[in-house]
Simulated assay, not measured.
Amino acid sequence: MDGTAPKDAGAAEAGAPDVIGTVDIARIMHAIPHRYPFLLIDRVVEVVRNHSAVGIKNVTVNENFFQGHFPGHPVMPGVLIIESMAQTAAVLVVETLGEEAAGKVVYFMSVESAKFRRPVQPGDQLRIHVTKDRNRGNVWKFNAVARVDGVSVAEATYAAMIMSKAAGS
């Protein structure tokens, strides 16, 4: 699929999940404001609107953070793994809200229970599994697990808020 929404979302079976295909990098860049070097997901391979998403981050030795973290032993910083989780969740929010999200930004609010299980290194592919826990108004809470080759490398619970962009943004 090209990642576009079905033309008649109302035609889906009642109670059936609203699943869309791959969200490519162009659509991610349309959905969230992040750009190099801070765009930390390459695609979202599965979105179940209002429920879950799976983001992909291909980790390469060319990442700018590897110059200093750590020279001779490159390790992806844990906070950037958490940020890739947040960006995957932001795409889920925008895909869920559709036109209602136009002109808005998803802001990170809190992180709880972050755990890092093993280092992420060049050549790894992060698969970021994000599940919506709940949302109330413009505040959304998520659970996420990042895996490499099916093995958990990090997990966290976090919250985000969708808001209008500040004037002049």
Rank of each mutant, 00 (worst) to 15 (best):
S113K: 15
G98E: 09
A102N: 15
V106F: 05
A114R: 04
A101C: 10
V120P: 01
G103F: 13
Q121K: 14
E99C: 06
T96R: 01
R117G: 02
G123S: 09
T96H: 05
E100C: 05
V94L: 07
E112I: 04
L97Q: 08
V105L: 15
F108I: 02
G123I: 11
G103S: 11
Q121L: 10
S113C: 07
K104N: 08
V91F: 09
G123M: 10
L97N: 04
V94E: 01
S113V: 05
A114G: 11
Q121P: 04
K115Y: 15
L92W: 14
S110D: 10
R117I: 05
P119S: 12
F108K: 00
A102F: 13
S113Y: 09
Y107A: 00
S110G: 06
K104D: 05
G123Y: 09
E99K: 13
V93Q: 01
P122W: 12
V91Y: 07
P122Q: 08
G103V: 12
K104F: 09
K104H: 13
E112N: 13
L97H: 11
V106P: 00
A114V: 12
G103P: 13
V106H: 01
A101W: 12
V106L: 05
F108W: 08
E95A: 06
V93A: 03
V94Q: 01
M109G: 05
A101M: 10
P122M: 13
